[in-house]
Design a protein around this nucleic acid. Structure first.
Length: 260
DNA sequence: AAGTTACTCAACCGCAGACGA
DNA sequence: TTCGTCTGCGGTTGAGTAACT
């Protein structure tokens, strides 16, 4: 049934890494660089599988890793990013320098889930995701049939976007026209704003900051209609039959990358 | 002090996309 | 286009430790 586990081969070490193994791995990678994990253990003289080496390096040995003591700012950012992205730990980790996806995932599952549940005093919640690689206009239209604001109103406050263990590298849309350039700028600015605790983004004009502030970044969705821009409205109308659309930030970002 | 329970987090697992032959 | 391999991801496990009885 499927491929056999890579660590099940006889003669390979499993479990906790020793200091000697760490040293060997770090020495090899500092001399030869990352990559080719499959053959790395053999070349480095380690009795480990490639996966294990990769994980050890990325989560523990890699230079610049911060360990423990997640600050209040980081915690706040994790919560906000999780609201936007769901359980996409690698994406979340990408916005927290020095933190690994594994650490954030653990922190979320052990600490934040309990905190958030205590704050909201509501039961655990699981639901389907829409962020799996393919988003079609029919999916968008399905979302669009919700009157503005209703998606928020009917949403469980504990709801987050849960994803399966799959990479999401592109979004395919059935040939709508490209968005106006200022939409792209808006999204980039919104993404930038997400990485700042302050609502004012450096090096942005007052108008741009006004635009950013018009998005409610603490909710699951950015509302297009709140951009209040005639060019955007016209594009939205021509692309999606004039319906209001709530699209989660990550899918939107991927959508724009596909168009770019 | 000893036993039990709860918690943390490093490591493993299986899946799925990317990529080259 | 198909197939096999590599890589990266999120979910889950379990050993070690702390807190509690």
């Amino acid at each position: 049934m499927g491929r056999s586990p890579c660590c099940s081969k006889e003669g390979l070490n499993r479990g906790a890494w020793t200091a000697v193994e760490d040293k060997m791995l770090a020495a090899y990678i500092s001399g030869h660089g990352e990559g080719n994990w499959r053959s790395l253990p053999r070349r480095a003289g380690l009795k480990r599988c490639g996966k294990s080496c990769r994980l050890r390096w990325l989560n523990y040995l890699r230079p610049g890793i911060k360990r423990g003591n997640i600050s209040n700012d980081e915690e706040d950012l994790i919560i906000r990013l999780h609201n936007l992205l769901g359980n996409r730990w690698s994406l979340i980790a990408g916005r927290l320098p020095g933190r690994t996806d594994n650490e954030i995932k653990n922190y979320w599952n052990t600490t934040l889930v309990k905190k958030i549940r205590a704050q909201r005093s509501c039961p655990p919640f699981k639901h389907k995701t829409m962020s799996k690689a393919r988003v079609t206009t029919s999916a968008l239209e399905q979302q669009a049939t919700q009157p503005p604001g209703q998606a928020q109103a009917t949403t469980n406050p504990c709801q987050t976007i849960q994803t399966q263990a799959s990479r999401c590298t592109k979004v395919i849309v059935d040939a709508p026209p490209p968005p106006p350039q200022n939409l792209k700028q808006s999204i980039e600015l919104t993404k930038l704003a997400n990485t700042h605790s302050s609502s004012n983004v450096p090096n942005c004009s007052g108008k741009q900051n006004q635009l950013i502030n018009s998005c409610n970044l603490t909710t699951n969705y950015v509302h297009f209609e709140e951009f209040n821009d005639p060019t955007l409205e016209s594009w939205m109308e021509s692309s999606f039959l004039g319906k209001n659309i709530n699209l989660d930030m990550d899918s939107l970002t991927l959508l724009l990358e596909e168009w770019a």
